[in-house]
Structures are given as structure tokens and as C-alpha cells.
Design a binder for these strands. Structure first.
Length: 229
DNA sequence: TTAGGGGTTTGAGGGGCGGT
DNA sequence: ACCGCCCCTCAAACCCCTAA
């Protein structure tokens, strides 16, 4: 496995650990390790004239960006001469995915349009679980009862992202998309799933393996940054 | 007839920030 | 320093539908 993927899994493990602590689902603690990893990884590929604002590096704050329609804090903002030129948003979905899948996707469309209409580059990286636990019926702020069977990621869940990726270059389409699918072993260590264990089509597997891969995402994001600078 | 898939709506709670 | 407000994110709650 590539170095970048190994480092990524280490960051994910930290994030997942924060998530599993009390109140973790709603805390930004979960976001810090992974945002930091992305920022550092990207920064390594850029010269000194660029800087990044995100959780986990510098002053540990996100950049407030004045989008076309509303102001928005950017997860990972790449700046040149104090001006944002590109950004990556990041999402790690830990439970109850299927009932929220449309929310996530529609949020992405709106967020993308808001940012891209200001002319800066926009990328999105999504971490999904092959097997996602479903929690129901909680009391107070406690995590609810876990359903016996986890949700299993399927072709249709990924379909809309692939269609978006293959769409024409409109403002609602991110300049770049990345998706990875993880599962966790009994020690809560993350690993990349084998796509053959799912009902994904060959085409979908190819896109996941190549276009949406972490390595490709970082590489293309660097190109996007340079293009926008 | 029930469990789960899939969708929409609601809101808990973290954290930032400004006022005092 | 502390409060209170507000914004945001992530799912929990709630819903309908269908297959077994």
C-alpha cells in the first residue's frame, strides 16, 4: 500500500477514535486528524508561496469564505497571496448513511455552486463505510440502539456521484471528486475494502480504483491549485 | 406483519463569538 | 470570565413503501 494511504488510515483511525468518545459525533475533534492529514499532504506538494487554512494546522481555524450566495467556512482552503484559490471539502460518514444519502448529495451540489461561482477551485473527498452501522431510538444525547444488520454500500449509492463526475462542467459539479470505502476490523482499525465483495459494476470499480482514489485526488488537486494560481 | 430500504424533516449539541 | 446567541454538522426521528 502507498505511503499516502497508510498515513491516511492512521488519520482515519484517530478520527474514528474521537468519534467513538462521548459526544464525538457532533464534535469537531473527529475532523481534526483527517483535515490535518489532508492539509499537510497537499502542502508538501506546493512551494512556499502557498498556504493552507484548516483545522489542525496553523491557528487551527477554517477560512471563512464569502461564497456567491452565503458565507461558508472552508474545510481545507489553499491560499496564494492571502486569497483563497482552491478548496477541498471532506466528509467521513460514520453511521445511518442511507437515510441521509440525499441530504449529503444535495448539500454537496449547493456547496459546490456557492464556492465555484466565486471562481475558485472546488474538490470534495468522501469517506464511506462498506458496512455502516445504523443506530435508532436514542434517549437524550446517547447513541441509540444499533440495528442488527449494518447497511451495505451498493451500486446505487455511488451512482449519483459517478453521474455527477461524468456531467458537463457546470458550477454545481465539483472540479474534482474522491471517494474511498473503508471498513473497520474488531480492533477498530480501518482498512480499504475489496470492491469485489460488493455489488459494484466493473465500471464503478474502475472509477473508484482510478479516478476517485486518494492518490489521484491529491495529484489532481495539486494541478487544480496550480491552474487557479 | 415485520424488518429493512430509502427518503424527508427535525434538532441536539459543539463551538465560535460578541456583549457585558 | 461568563453568558447567551447563533450557526453548523451529523444523524435521529419520522415517514412510506416493498419484499419475504
Amino acid at each position: 500500500m502507498s505511503k499516502i494511504k497508510q498515513d491516511f488510515l492512521v488519520a482515519i483511525k484517530k478520527s474514528f477514535s474521537a468519534y467513538n468518545k462521548k459526544g464525538g459525533a457532533r464534535s469537531t475533534k473527529k475532523l481534526v486528524p483527517i483535515h490535518k492529514f489532508l492539509s499537510k499532504t497537499i502542502l508538501k506538494e506546493l512551494d512556499r508561496s502557498f498556504s493552507i487554512k484548516s483545522l489542525g494546522i496553523g491557528d487551527g481555524k477554517e477560512l471563512k469564505f464569502y461564497g456567491k450566495y452565503y458565507p461558508k467556512n472552508l474545510d481545507i482552503a489553499v491560499l496564494k497571496d492571502n486569497a483563497a484559490i482552491a478548496t477541498t471539502s471532506f466528509k467521513f460518514i460514520t453511521s445511518n448513511y442511507k437515510q441521509n444519502a440525499n441530504n449529503y448529495f444535495e448539500n454537496l451540489l449547493g456547496e459546490t455552486a456557492n464556492i465555484r461561482r466565486r471562481g475558485i477551485g472546488f474538490a470534495h473527498f468522501l469517506v464511506l463505510r462498506g458496512h455502516t452501522p445504523y443506530f435508532s431510538k436514542n434517549k437524550g444525547n446517547l447513541r441509540g440502539k444499533e440495528r442488527k444488520n449494518p447497511e451495505i454500500l451498493n451500486e446505487r449509492n455511488l451512482r449519483k456521484y459517478i453521474k455527477l463526475f461524468q456531467d458537463l462542467d457546470f458550477p454545481h459539479k465539483p472540479d474534482l471528486l474522491g471517494i474511498c470505502v473503508l471498513d473497520f476490523d474488531e480492533k477498530r482499525n480501518p482498512f480499504f475494502v475489496n470492491f469485489d465483495d460488493f455489488d459494484f459494476s466493473d465500471k464503478t470499480k474502475d472509477i473508484l480504483q482510478d479516478d476517485f482514489s486518494l492518490e489521484n485526488f491529491i495529484e489532481k488537486f495539486i494541478l487544480l491549485v496550480k491552474l487557479k494560481s
